[in-house]
Amino acid sequence: MRKLFLSHTTEFVLIGVIVAMSVFLGFATDRFLTLGNAFDLLNISAVNIIFAVGLLVVLIAGGIDISFAVAASVVQYVTALALERIGGGGWVSGLLIAGSAGIFLGAINAFLIHRFRIISIVVTIATFNIYFGLLMFFTKGVSIYNLPDWLTTRVIVYEREMADGSWAEITLPVVVMAICVLATWLFISRTTTGRQLYAFGDNPEGARRFGINIGAMQFIAFGWLGLMAGIAGLMQAHYAQEVVPNALYGRELDVLAAVVLGGARLGGGKGSVLGCVLGVLLVSITQNGLNLMGVSPFAFKMIVGAIILAAITLSSARIEKLVPILAPRKPADGEAAARGESR
């Protein structure tokens, strides 16, 4: 148990914080600890969790991506137009189109990163501007409302009437989210390719000497995020029942913050699917709880920001570092040096 705790500290801390918050909110509000609210939380978080597990794969491989959210907007548009062209389509064709479009946009990032040796933050800031600029230019900022019926009809997978007469529902995006989470988990922790991604993010030169195909790693990581972004884009369009070109603008940084809150490391080699999901849920639960407690919606983000800042500060700080007098440690200098070098 101790071993399990040591190897998954972030996850346990997050679970602890979530449980503590839930207990508090359960007492403070009538509604928080109800099935309906729990399902709502999942329905609301589904799209962000799909984004998050995709971004996790890129972070594990040592990259970063700023462009995935606007890429998802591009995918929404492309998919909506393509579906119109083929006369409506259905879930299968919709997912296929969205997925391939997402993979294509991700592959552009991977190509630029690998072929021209440009670091991922530079490439994705550029493609962020390119994707978003071109999207707004070609759509002139106009939204699409006449989506196919199958896409805009809410699909309720499970429902149950509550004692007070309200309905607790789980909708399609939650199921898709669960599949994406499971697939990502299987991929990164149960396949050799997934382990190679970890190794590549942890020590790229070491991975190269083992004959791991560096280019393939980039394409797989960014392709996976592209796929997830495509699926998330489609789910978001389904959830919102419309396609608005700038609806996802700015989402990338919120997702990034949540993923890192979940223990992924900028620089690669570290991060888990569970932590990533918990990171998103913690942010959602905070917002949901504040909402139920009647706090002004305008204060949500402020409090969420403060919580993330505190979390990052506390998780990065060892007490000796804050109070240098308590520093009877030895290898920390070497460790810091190694970090300095790896940058």
């Binding site: 050799t192 382990r195 970890y198 190794a199 942890d202 020590n203 083992f210 791991i212 080699g269």
Partner: peptide
């Protein structure tokens, strides 16, 4: 050494079984 610090000792030692395209 070209090892992978974040991965387990077992995975580091048996990495050959994880490599390959």
């Amino acid at each position: 050494l070209a090892l992978f610090p974040e991965m387990s000792v077992a995975e580091n030692i048996a990495f050959q079984t994880l490599s390959g395209a």
